[in-house]
Amino acid sequence: MMRYLKLTNFELSRFFKIYLVLIGVTFVMQLLGVVFTSNKYLSAIKELLESGMTQEEALKQWGPFSFYNVTSSFWFFAPVALCAASLIIYVLFIWYRDWFGKNTFAYRLLMLPTARINVYFAKATAIFLMVLGLISLQIAFLPIESHLLQSIVPAPYLEEQGINQMISSFDSLRILYPTTFIEYLTHYGVGLMAVLVVFTGVLFERCFRWKGILLGVLFAGISLIVFFLPVIIQEFVLVQFFYPTELFFLMVLTGLIVMTGSILMSNYLLNKKIRV
């Protein structure tokens, strides 16, 4: 356990500087986004007022300003996309840096006096915690950004939004912020499963190189089929046989099977087949 925690902490530390930079960039860009979009709106309103329009007429033409104008802007979305892309790339890089870094670091990592699967768990945990961390910090940033917005845009032009409305207004990211806890567990459970399967794919490649890529893809394909097996049965074999709740629990089960399969396969590969 201590070994696993130490390894997790170690994996976090290795990426922490970049991680902090990602957080910083997100926060700063989104704050700038608030300033720029609201100023643009206010200057448009000002122009209308100067041309002789009343406040009501100007409001009618442009509509009130809400946080949606911010979330739908480049300034808001770009850093989110940057963070997502960085972490997705790092899912692969977290392994390859050990092989391609200096001093055959992978060799040292695998020779640690602990079960090798702990390395796999530590890397998965680190990725998972960093994703959750970004998601949480983004929620924490929203009220701060909203306060800044309120201090820039005067009340008559501002349509106030609660945090849930802000979140539901950036619809492409809605899936990251479910409203019920059970949905939260399922969404991120599926995410964790995907990370474990990709890790196993990477290990296949590290064990068998070119042939391993093929095996890895095959493994991912089988995992996908196993996970969606209840849906496949529902659609083609026993048509509409399962009730939605049953389908849900069957998919929880197949999801757990895929995760267990990935862990067992990775354990085997790490212990018997890995090449440095």
Partner: peptide, 17 residues
């Protein structure tokens, strides 16, 4: 690092829900 990350996650998500 590990502890602060977990604290941030737990506090924010619990508050959010």
């Amino acid at each position: 690092r590990l502890i602060s990350l977990i604290i941030v996650i737990v506090v924010v998500l619990v508050t959010y829900f």
